[in-house]
Design a protein around this nucleic acid. Structure first.
Lengths: 145, 145
DNA sequence: GCTTGCGGTGGAGTGAACTCCAGCGCCTAG
DNA sequence: CTAGGCGCTGGAGTTCACTCCACCGCAAGC
């Protein structure tokens, strides 16, 4: 029942999330992380809710939401039901973006695997680079065009 | 059966990949895309191999490889078997990074879904879990109301 | 006491990746 | 012929998200 017992210092949150101390402080200044309390001597204390909030912000950032939008999301606050509905909508949109990003990632994986197969082939046999029928060369230092 | 038939202009490549005209030109200047030919009047022509190369570069970028590293990769060229081996190694490392990123994405999805559930709950009942009206702690026993 | 370490603040600085632009040429349509 | 459209170039400018810094205070250890 004790807040102090479960509250973390900024360093701990940093280690927990991988965000740097500077970034955590900067996010807070930018209004991305409310809920952070201060100890008597002015140091930040992150309770469970604050830590969860940091993680949410991190999730939004990593899925490509810009700072300004996150701020907007945060500013809506826990106020009215409409605000909650709007926040929910924003998260849903972000989830869509996340799925798109994952699809991209899968496509990128496909492309990279294809290229890797090319290299294996190239190393096994002396086959030309990668083209099926082109007079193109494949990469390499600019031979002075 | 000729390059002209299958070669694309910069605009087409732009539309195909989603990269802007400026970005394509800039990538080329930075040495990320060799293989691009020029038509008689100096315009860029992207043959199939060049287009594939653009896609590869895009895959590397999207999976977080910085420009400088991509350039290094490209500069290795199709030369010796060791170079091919090194290129292959780089791609393998990038594949690892891609998988890590995807794991992050999945974690982010989990976090966002959790938060969305909170909002739905908040809208259904008046129960708030994550916001600043709470003294702290919401991980423990649900506050009956 | 002093010093060491962690943390806080405001503001300046950085690096990466584009993005924009002025001025030019080529080609085609009218 | 002129006008419009696309593309080229080199270089400057912008954006974003941090990151660094100097300087301050508190608290503990020696």
């Amino acid at each position: 029942m004790n807040a102090t017992a479960t509250a973390l210092g900024i360093r701990e949150v940093s280690e927990l999330t991988g965000l740097t101390l500077d970034t955590l402080r900067w996010y807070e200044r930018e209004g991305l992380i409310p809920l952070v309390k201060r100890s008597s001597d002015g140091r930040r204390r992150y309770g469970p809710a604050a830590v969860r909030f940091v993680r949410l912000v991190q999730a939004l950032r990593r899925t490509g939401m810009p700072i300004a939008e996150i701020r907007h999301f945060v500013m809506l606050g826990p106020g009215t039901p409409e605000h909650s509905a709007q926040r929910l909508r924003i998260l849903q949109e972000q989830e869509v973006r996340l799925h798109r990003r994952r699809a991209e990632l899968d496509e990128d994986l496909r492309v990279m695997r294809h290229k890797m197969a090319d290299f294996r082939d190239l190393m096994a046999h002396g086959r030309t680079c990668e083209d099926d029928d082109l007079p193109d060369d494949c990469g390499g230092p600019p031979p002075e065009r």
